[in-house]
Design a protein around this nucleic acid. Structure first.
Length: 486
RNA sequence: GCGAAAGUAGCUCAGCUGGUAGAGCAUCACGUUGCCAACGUGAGGGUCGAGGGUUCGAAUCCCUUCUUUCGCUCCA
């Protein structure tokens, strides 16, 4: 990587300057990987969420919404598999400074080393390497984690990096769930987790939501909310953080219909990103290989965007089968089945999930919208945000600060404010005010000038083309609405 | 967490081998101008990420710590 300025650098500094995103707790030196959304950022983020909610939930007869709490019964996470599966056992080689996931490392070893490991851990020696034996080695090592490094060295575990026996550290568990305590006393009886995904809030409410809404299969439940993961490595600005916000929709259907709905939703969701004006050449759907699939999923597509740090996932659309509802039935002893009247039978619905990151969507629209243009030898920074989500929809200016122009402009902006996100600016030259709004992504500019006083008309400026047309004051709202819906 | 690099004004940065901080842009005020980052004058803003040490004296040298970036790993 060259040391040239990346889009991410530009966006980070633009965000700070213009009030999109600030580093959290900055005056205390910042808290790792947490970000605060400023005046413009909160509008953009909220607009993205509202647009998702409208597209996925309210515009559809067969999707309803809900909002579950972040803290849930700890058994939820046992049932979902997160307590058992949502951590990574890691070891480092002090020699090569490489870090490995222990299960991946063991998988890569020769059978003789595996046998030696089993011998030292008093496990039955296997004939060949399979997932089962890898898992039981990891489990056994975990029980003696204080000696695990020693055991790895003594059994001759090789570092693939240099093909020598590694100088291994003891294994460490990185639990990806944030743990905290409910109630005044810190004891193990009151452990709760900050949810690592919003989906489980939907699954545990499946019956509540279905019966009260009287929905029949197939139907979906959407939710937007915060989730928390104690990621080992965060970074790329707001792309990967420990606290983030999800927009998730769980679509319940018959088990033999999941592939049909998976195809439907992956296309719908891809189109959603395209409808925000995002460059379709930088968007793609990528099917997961069988080795990438999560423990609950049998098929999965990622919607990816090509950032300048590479293709990265914005949203996962997954066939989760009946895994989640079955697990919750098993652990809660409650019936979460659906009565299918057509066949007169109780069935466990299967689930197709569309799970998007709000912060990632926001980073995507910013990265995709940011443009630098050359105008009369000057550079112009423009955020070509869709007018559907731009933080400010319209800015109103008096051409001059005299002849009553400010008063007229102020009256116009007051009148627009209830329907459109509006901004009034009389500071500096008119050109400077246009450029300020270009950089904030404001799609429309209205200027009150000499003619306004004579004939009640103003100019309406388009951010991207910089072209202006003259319209009368009472046409402004109609013109804005029309442009926003096109 | 490990390895590498970095942290000086709101932003981007300069500050040579130690002598208590500067520029451009941005912000605010006044004047002038009036349709695409104009100009003039002036102002505000930094205990140089934090803590400790060496020194007569530290932004500069040493240690610790926090944060950021890039890799390893993981995911929305």
């Amino acid at each position: 990587m060259k040391k040239e300025t990346s889009i991410l650098d530009v966006l980070t500094s633009l965000s700070k300057q213009r009030g999109f995103v600030f580093q959290s707790s900055e005056i205390y030196g910042g808290l790792g990987s947490t970000w605060d959304y400023g005046p413009l950022g909160v509008e953009l983020k909220r607009n993205i969420k509202n647009y998702w909610w409208k597209s996925v939930v309210t515009a559809r007869e067969n999707v309803i919404g809900m909002d579950a709490s972040i803290l849930m019964h700890p058994k939820v996470w046992e049932a979902s598999g997160h307590v058992d599966n949502f951590h990574d056992p890691l070891v480092d080689n002090k020699e090569t400074k490489k870090r490995y996931r222990l299960d991946h490392l063991i998988e890569s070893q020769d059978i003789t080393i595996i046998k030696e490991l089993c011998n030292m851990l008093k496990l039955k020696a296997p004939e060949k390497i399979n997932e089962e034996i890898v898992q039981s080695i990891v489990t056994s090592l975990n029980k003696v984690s204080q000696q695990s490094g020693e055991i790895l060295i003594d059994s001759g575990v090789i570092d693939p990096e240099d093909n020598n026996v590694g100088d291994w550290t003891n294994m460490r568990q990185f639990n990806l769930m944030f743990k905290t305590f409910a109630g005044p006393v810190e004891d193990s009886g009151s452990v709760v987790y900050l949810r690592p995904e919003t989906a489980q809030g939907i699954f545990v409410n499946f019956i509540n939501a279905q019966t009260t809404s009287r929905k029949k299969l197939p139907f979906g439940i959407g939710q937007i909310g915060k989730a928390f993961r104690n990621e080992i490595t965060t970074g790329n600005f707001i792309f990967r953080t420990r606290e983030f916000e999800q927009m998730e929709m769980e679509f319940f259907c018959k088990e033999d219909e999941t592939s049909k709905w998976l195809d439907y939703w992956k296309q719908e969701r891809l189109n959603w990103f395209k409808s925000l004006g995002i460059n379709s050449e930088k968007l793609r759907l990528r099917a997961h290989g069988s080795d990438e699939l999560a423990h609950y999923s049998s098929a999965c597509y990622d919607i990816e965007y090509r950032f300048d740090f590479g293709w990265s996932e914005l949203e996962g659309i997954a066939d989760r089968g009946t895994y989640d509802l079955s697990k919750h039935m098993e652990h809660s002893n409650k019936k979460l089945t659906y009565f299918d009247q057509s066949n007169n039978e109780h069935i466990t619905p299967a689930v197709v999930e569309a799970s998007a990151g709000v912060d990632r969507a926001m980073l995507t629209v910013l990265a995709d919208a940011f443009t630098t243009e050359e105008i009369n030898g000057e550079t112009r920074n423009v955020l070509k945000l869709s007018s559907k989500i731009a933080p400010v929809t319209v800015a109103v200016f008096p051409l001059m600060n005299k002849q009553g122009m400010p008063e007229i402009a102020q009256k116009i902006v007051d009148d627009l404010r209830s329907e459109f996100s509006s901004f009034y600016d009389a500071g500096g030259s008119i050109g400077k005010r246009y450029r300020r709004q270009d950089e904030a992504g404001t799609p429309f500019g209205i200027t009150v000038d000499h003619d306004t006083i004579e004939d009640q008309t103003v100019t309406l400026r388009d951010r991207d083309t910089m072209e202006q047309k003259r319209i009368s004051i009472n046409q402004i709202k109609a013109a804005l609405s029309e442009s926003m819906n096109s």
